[in-house]
């Protein structure tokens, strides 16, 4: 187990290196002078030059790259140009929002998405299956930001059930207001993941139900509920866990967009504002942190996988 994790970590190193170089190049090799863009069209040449020096853009690219790496090595992800704070602290401030949103959304997604898939597979080709599949299909076809706006119009403006926007930190108002500020965006965000997971789970479950060992369980006299919940379900989880990384990736990606709709001050908003303000170090640093986070998440998913499937435990 430990050796497996070490191996995954060692594989992650080149991936992170390549990702860092890509993020670096993204901001440096593309057309346009960031300094000019930051200073704005009316800035004096001196001002532009000053920004250029400040960014270190006047030095050879390779020097800049090495410097960027040496900073990364000590955990320095750069300074934001517009926020007057380091990228780490800017991200740190907004991280709880995005984490809270993703967490609540995941808590909504997992039981519903997996549950729907199991139900649809168990009653395959029935009207239950048909309805679940239509819902799942809608989940992966409706644009989340649009559903979010409609949802605000109805549930917040019309009915006044939830606040239309904004975030209440857990430390400020306790669980109630925190959840109230998140539940609507979290559910909207969950729709896509629910559809995605339900579709994956259904086909995984169908495969499992056709397996011989299900027949063995029934031949032992095991009741239907135990057949599904004990014999079929854990096997169904194996392929479902493999897409957990993708699910989380979709979730966080979706939250970037949903944060715009509900004006949640999370990382998604940070990055979009960074882009609109041409705050390149901020965008660069945030992207990089995202990449690092997902490399770790994928390793965690691999670990979960070895727990669910005993066949890879010793491998």
């Amino acid at each position: 187990m430990f050796r497996g994790i070490m191996m995954r970590l060692s594989q992650a190193v080149p991936v992170l290196l390549i990702f860092s170089v890509m993020v670096f190049m993204l901001m440096h090799l593309l057309p346009g002078d960031p300094a000019l863009a930051i200073a704005g069209p009316d800035a004096s040449p001196e001002a532009v030059q000053k920004i250029r020096e400040q960014l270190g853009l006047d030095r050879p690219l390779i020097v800049q790259l090495l410097e960027w790496f040496s900073h990364l090595a000590v955990g320095n992800f750069g300074e934001s140009l517009t926020l007057k704070q380091s990228v780490i602290s800017a991200v740190g401030e907004r991280l709880p929002v995005t984490l809270s949103l993703s967490f609540v959304s995941l808590v909504v997604t997992l039981p519903i998405g997996i549950g729907l898939g199991v139900v649809a597979a168990y009653w395959r080709n029935s009207w239950i299956d048909a309805w679940v599949m239509v819902l799942a299909l809608l989940g992966v076809s409706l644009p989340g930001f649009w559903v979010g706006i409609l949802s605000v119009l109805y549930f917040s403006v019309q009915l006044g059930w939830f606040p239309p926007s904004g975030y209440v930190p857990l430390t400020e108002g306790g669980v109630g207001p925190w959840l109230a500020s998140l539940i609507q965006p979290a559910v909207v965000l969950a729709l896509f993941q629910i559809g995605f997971l339900a579709r994956i789970t259904r086909s995984a479950m169908l495969d499992v139900l056709d397996q011989d060992f299900i027949r063995t369980a029934r031949a032992k006299g095991v009741d239907e509920w135990t057949t599904i919940s004990k014999h079929a379900f854990r096997n169904t989880l194996i392929p479902v866990v493999t897409v957990l990384g993708i699910t989380l990736s979709l979730l966080v990606g979706g939250s970037v967009v949903i944060e715009q709709v509900f004006a949640l001050p999370g990382i998604g908003r940070l990055i979009v504002q960074g882009i609109l303000n041409r705050d390149y170090p901020l965008v660069q640093g945030t992207m990089l942190l995202f990449g690092f986070a997902f490399v770790v998440i994928n390793i965690l998913v691999d670990i979960i996988y070895t727990i669910v499937d005993p066949r890879v435990r010793y491998g």
Binding site: V15, I18, L30, P31, G253, V272, I275, M287, F294
Partner: peptide, 20 residues
Amino acid sequence: DALMAAPAILLAIGLGAALG
């Protein structure tokens, strides 16, 4: 793997912003 490290939509946002 590196391209998949960040969520697809985020990568697209970054790239799209850089490309104009």
